[in-house]
Amino acid sequence: MNQNFILKLHPMTKLYFTLFVIVAVLIIPSYLFAFSSFPVLMIVALFAGSRVFKEFIGIILKALLFLLLLVFLMQLFYYPGETVLGEWGIFKWTAEGLQYGLILTSKILAIGSAFILFFRITEVKDFVKSLEDIGLPPMGAYVVMSTLQIIPEMKRQANTIMEAQKTRGVETEGSMLVRAKAFIPTLTPLILSSIASTEERAITLESRAFSAPVKKTSLHKLSKSTADRMLPVVFLLILVALIVWRVVS
């Protein structure tokens, strides 16, 4: 299994790092500070391994880049301001809109990429187990795990159904219209298979006495290293220093 330092950290340590990044960019109003957090997250992803780095960058490009561009343009053209920098037809952009657009997009990039990195370097089962260890009831832990896994699970089922359609001679690749026509027939079996899998999970949980009013045990154990005990303290001290600097300045 992966043995590098980043992946071996306790899930709560990774969560504390994610929260540290989020709180830090909220404390410091400068968009330069928020934008500078992204290269730091890229370095962390790179140290976590090439696979993690590629997945991290891929999700940023596919899911976050378009959102950032849309938010920036909306703020640039529609945020109220007096200092007009330029005009194009009915659109005009102001210095205030540019400033606010940069601030908003920088914080979205920092917060969104921090969460994306967290789920790329943390196994869902490890994260849920760490929540159980700090007091989350097993039922709540199962709800969290099911919620986090529902989209990847449905994606895998959809890919399986699409492959089955392809073997039957259905055209599933090409233009957007062709893909849409191929995807619509997969909705019914996808929904039915999701319902069936939910029922199977319920039966499996009952057969393992999940709802029994006794203390639950687990074969999956998590342990904390020295780094896991020191890093949260370091994060807290840095946040305190940032707060003091913000108040003084």
Rank of each mutant, 00 (worst) to 15 (best):
R168T: 01
V144N: 04
W93C: 05
F118A: 12
K221L: 14
T172Y: 00
I184P: 01
E132T: 03
P189H: 00
I161L: 00
V144W: 03
A182W: 00
G97E: 03
F91C: 01
I108R: 08
F127G: 09
M74K: 08
V144K: 04
T226V: 07
T188H: 00
L117W: 09
L102N: 02
P152C: 06
N2E: 12
F66Q: 06
I243A: 15
G112F: 05
F183Y: 09
S146T: 07
V244W: 15
V44S: 12
A24E: 06
S50P: 04
I191V: 13
A180G: 03
V84W: 04
M12S: 14
G169C: 02
R51N: 07
L102A: 02
T13A: 12
K125R: 09
L26D: 05
L65I: 09
T13Q: 11
R229A: 07
V21R: 05
S211E: 12
T83L: 05
S194T: 06
T13K: 13
F56G: 02
Y78G: 04
G58H: 07
V23D: 10
E206A: 15
A141W: 01
L231V: 13
V234K: 14
K221W: 09
G135N: 06
R179V: 06
M12T: 14
P138E: 03
F56A: 02
A212L: 12
E123A: 07
L131F: 13
L68K: 02
F56V: 01
G89M: 11
P80E: 04
P80N: 08
H220F: 11
E199M: 05
R168D: 01
K224R: 15
Y142N: 05
V128D: 08
I203D: 14
G89R: 12
K129Y: 03
F33Y: 07
V247W: 15
I203Y: 15
A196L: 00
A34K: 04
Q149N: 10
L136I: 10
T188N: 00
F38N: 06
I22Y: 09
Q99S: 08
T186F: 00
A95K: 09
V178M: 06
L219Y: 14
P39N: 10
F183A: 13
I184S: 00
Q165D: 00
R51D: 08
I195Q: 02
G81W: 03
T204W: 04
L177C: 00
K129G: 02
T147P: 02
R120C: 13
T160Q: 01
M230Y: 13
N2Y: 07
M12Q: 14
L222S: 13
L117V: 11
I22C: 15
T18V: 13
V40I: 14
L136Q: 06
I6S: 12
L190H: 00
E82I: 08
V248D: 12
I108H: 07
L69E: 04
A209T: 13
F91Y: 08
K14A: 06
L131S: 07
I59V: 13
E199I: 04
